[in-house]
Design a protein around this nucleic acid. Structure first.
Lengths: 266, 266
DNA sequence: TCGATTCCCGTATACCCTACGGAAATAACC
DNA sequence: GGTTATTTCCGTAGGGTATACGGGAATCGA
């Protein structure tokens, strides 16, 4: 491999048959452990493993957070990790919920912005910052997510934000899902752009420039009049990063406009 | 591995340094080939490889579309594929653009629905159906996408749809990006739910049922009043599939409402 | 001191992608 | 027809991944 970078992404279909163990790990900080009596003392702890995985993924991409990589960073044998974490799937679950919990969202009873849109804004900004800190999140599937404290806190906050709109309970839930779908996806795209630039060492602009042949050799103006019109009207952003940021803002604003309009006709 | 399934997903950061070759492959059907003079006759053809990759991914998941798997399905040695396709990255690019091109969207001058919202609807339904046919698409990164005929046709159609709204050129483009972001993400989530059910052999409802401990042991009603309220008001859908479908519809409708409102105030 | 218990981890298996280089087939030319 | 250039075919090997297995090492209670 010369320039291209290959990322292998592990997708959690979590549990592997022992959901109780996974839940206990996810919620490990809400119950205190029973000190076991006999046996060798552990040299690590689950949080060490999870933290190291996150750090490696942040610095060198999700690939670096392999079982071997994490073990080496911790100075232990690869198989040692399996005494702390049942599998790579679970480790990824734990990493995800950990960073979800990093978002600073007010809990029930705590002070928050007055306007519901500003509250959603807070959610969206915290989530966006999370993706910027941990761009590998964009590569992790969100179906059957880790149902840990971080995920539940996010859902709770967003639902609480929407309750005052007095939509039907069903619509309130659906609106929250629509918002998270959009925010996660747009923020993930934005972060992924950064990640790919760092991982390949090539700017997005250089990538497009390499593909100049497209416009000169293959692009047919007759078949793409709208693209051509937008192009000539200078409708395309100068950089991919700018386009991603604009899209994020614009789409979220329009989505919230739509939800607001629906709430006001009730 | 007992129950859990691990998917390794290859993410294209395409090109690997030879963008001309990639473009030539993506647009292979728009220029006719020059018949080479000497040398052994090929027993396959790029389309055979791409089609087989798509078929395997459809039937048995993206994992099955490995170089070895595709080669075996074609009855050739693994390394033979490399005479048709420079790498796995490129193969995935070709698979993606192929299925993007499957969408039946009217080109310039061809008849289409009168209302712009119905036109967007057509785009969204075609895209959604595409994700249902090829759920592995949800696992493929869309940054630095394959700029082939399928992708360009989709962008052209959507932009043409939005032009009559008379937004600024910049906003027209941004609105199109916001729509594709939402549609791809929501449709991808929906398809992925199906995929995971098929891959694990476990329904989403069974998955949640396995996690009953969450509510009984870990869930704190005090810290999650909004979730609890929605729950008691029967706000949660009965099935994950239903929730995904509702979210898709609701979010797209509100997003289009927002765009329409903006267009009408001009 | 002697289990019992727990942690540590080397080895082996089964995948993955792909660089390399030689064998086989074909066409053009002499 | 023989030679040569060109292209396809693909076995082997190397380096990556996750993890099942089983034995060795450490620690506590009795």
């Amino acid at each position: 491999m010369t320039h291209g970078t290959l990322c292998t992404v592990t997708v959690r279909h979590s549990g592997g048959g022992q959901p109780e163990r996974t839940l206990a790990l996810l919620w490990r900080n809400t119950r205190q452990q029973v000190r076991r009596s006999a046996g060798r003392r552990p040299s690590l702890d689950v949080d060490d493993v999870v933290r190291t995985g996150i750090q490696l993924a942040d610095e060198r991409g999700l690939d670096a957070a392999s079982m071997g990589g994490v073990a080496k960073a911790l100075g232990v044998g690869t198989m040692t990790l399996y005494t702390y974490v049942p599998s790579k799937e679970e480790l990824l679950d734990l990493m995800v919920d950990e960073v979800l919990a990093e978002r600073q969202l007010p809990g029930p009873g705590e002070p928050r912005p007055a306007d519901w849109r500003e509250q959603v804004e807070l959610y969206s900004e915290q989530t966006r910052a999370m993706f910027q800190r941990h761009p590998w999140l964009a590569r992790v599937s969100t179906v059957r997510p880790p149902v840990g404290p971080g995920m539940l806190a996010g859902r709770e906050y967003l639902l609480a934000t929407l309750l005052p709109l007095n939509l039907s309970p069903r619509d309130t839930n659906t609106a929250a899902l629509a918002i998270t779908t959009y925010v996660d996806s747009a923020a993930g795209l934005e972060a992924e752009n950064l990640l790919v630039e760092r991982a390949t060492g090539q700017s997005n602009e250089a990538w497009w420039y390499e593909r100049n042949d497209l416009w000169e050799t293959y692009f047919d103006v007759e078949r793409h009049p709208a693209m051509t019109a937008i192009w000539h009207a200078n409708g395309y952003q100068d950089s991919v990063a700018e386009a991603a940021a604009d899209t994020y803002r614009y789409g979220l604003d329009r989505l919230l406009d739509g939800i607001q309009a629906q709430a006001e006709t009730l």
